[in-house]
Simulated assay, not measured.
Amino acid sequence: MAATEHARPGTPCWVSLQTADLTAAQKFYGAVLGWTFRPGSLGEDFRVALSGGRAVAGLGNVARAMGVPVSWTSYFAVDDADAVASRVRERGGTVAVGPLAFGNGRAALAADPAGAVFGFWEGRVLRDWRIGHGVAPAWLELRTRDCFDAALFYSGIFLWDQSQETDVRYEDDVVMVSVGGHTVACLRGGGVEAAPDPKVRPRWHVYFRVDNVEKAVEAALLAGGSVAAEPGLSMVGHEATLCDPEGGIFTVTSGPPD
């Protein structure tokens, strides 16, 4: 059994794909990212994606039942899910689901005032899962209209502004968030308008590390996916943004290892 711990509040602790076809999602992400899968602890509609036998992400066959688009959702660790839900509402956000009991913890799905969906989790988390390390996602980024307004919102709900371990700083036109000296998220604003194209709606965006970006792009196309942004360089490294066959958007990167 994987070791667990209580994460620092406000730290990203998991990512999960809300899919409408669990079998097809496993086939696609297995082909593109080389993942294998095992049953999750939440029932037949959930799977845990593995890389080298270590947990990377979750997949839940819940998009159709919840009436939400297929998408990747980022979860943040909290001490008190009810208190965080109250702060979300007080600051103009929306709590769509929960907090509800799941396994050995409690989870909720919410949206910030700009509409970016995120989750938060009250309970123990995987000890070796950390953004930018090991098999966990390489990078986590909020793409929104105003990164400063977003920083105020998330600082308020996760109490980043009250923690001596959390540093929220402006750097190269983005807001960088570090917890315990480790960068956990980037908030990027500007150039995102209220357009019907889902590629430009405010969202938390997940980057997964691959050995070869071009090969991942080729595998995605062969598996029925599409390319949202062609391979190129960014602050993370060499990358490309892909869509799975159901429209779930993510980025693959061969950025520098830990």
Rank of each mutant, 00 (worst) to 15 (best):
G40L: 07
V217E: 10
L242S: 07
L159Q: 13
F28D: 01
P137W: 01
A219L: 10
V48C: 00
G181C: 13
L33T: 03
E122C: 09
E246L: 09
S16V: 00
F208C: 05
I249E: 04
F28I: 03
G248S: 12
V175L: 07
R47S: 15
M1W: 02
G181M: 15
T144C: 07
G93N: 08
L22T: 03
A20K: 03
A20H: 05
V62D: 02
F37D: 03
A63D: 04
A195R: 15
F120R: 08
R54I: 02
W160L: 05
L142R: 04
H6I: 12
F120D: 05
E214W: 13
P137D: 09
L187S: 04
F76L: 12
G60N: 12
F250Q: 02
M235C: 07
V88C: 09
A150G: 03
V62M: 13
T253K: 14
T166H: 08
P99I: 01
T251I: 11
R106Y: 06
T23L: 02
G237F: 02
V68Y: 06
T94D: 14
R127D: 09
G181N: 15
G53V: 04
H6D: 01
G134F: 13
G123N: 03
F158G: 01
T183A: 15
A85L: 04
P39T: 05
L233G: 02
G190Y: 08
V227T: 11
V177P: 04
Y29Q: 06
K215T: 05
L50G: 08
A49K: 06
R201D: 01
E214P: 00
V125Q: 08
M235P: 02
T183M: 14
D82I: 08
A240T: 03
D112E: 10
D45G: 14
G34P: 06
A101D: 13
T241G: 01
E165K: 14
F76N: 06
G119L: 08
A2I: 01
C243I: 00
A108T: 01
A96F: 13
G40E: 01
R124V: 06
S16R: 06
A20M: 07
V62N: 07
E5V: 10
P196I: 00
R145Q: 12
V68Q: 10
T11C: 14
S254Y: 10
F102R: 13
P257I: 05
Y29A: 02
G52Q: 14
L221D: 00
L50R: 11
R8V: 10
V217Y: 04
P231A: 01
D197V: 04
G43R: 09
R38S: 14
W204M: 05
E171N: 11
P231I: 02
G93E: 07
G30V: 04
G191F: 02
G190C: 08
E214S: 08
W72C: 10
G119T: 06
L100C: 09
E218S: 13
P245K: 13
L222Q: 14
W35Y: 14
G34D: 15
A223R: 07
L221F: 02
T94V: 14
G190H: 07
V88Q: 09
N61L: 05
C243Q: 05
G225A: 12
L242Q: 11
T36Y: 12
D197F: 00
A63E: 10
A151E: 10
R145E: 12
T251G: 13
G43S: 02
G247I: 03
L152Y: 01
W139K: 11
V48D: 11
A110Q: 06
A101M: 04
R130K: 13
V125G: 00
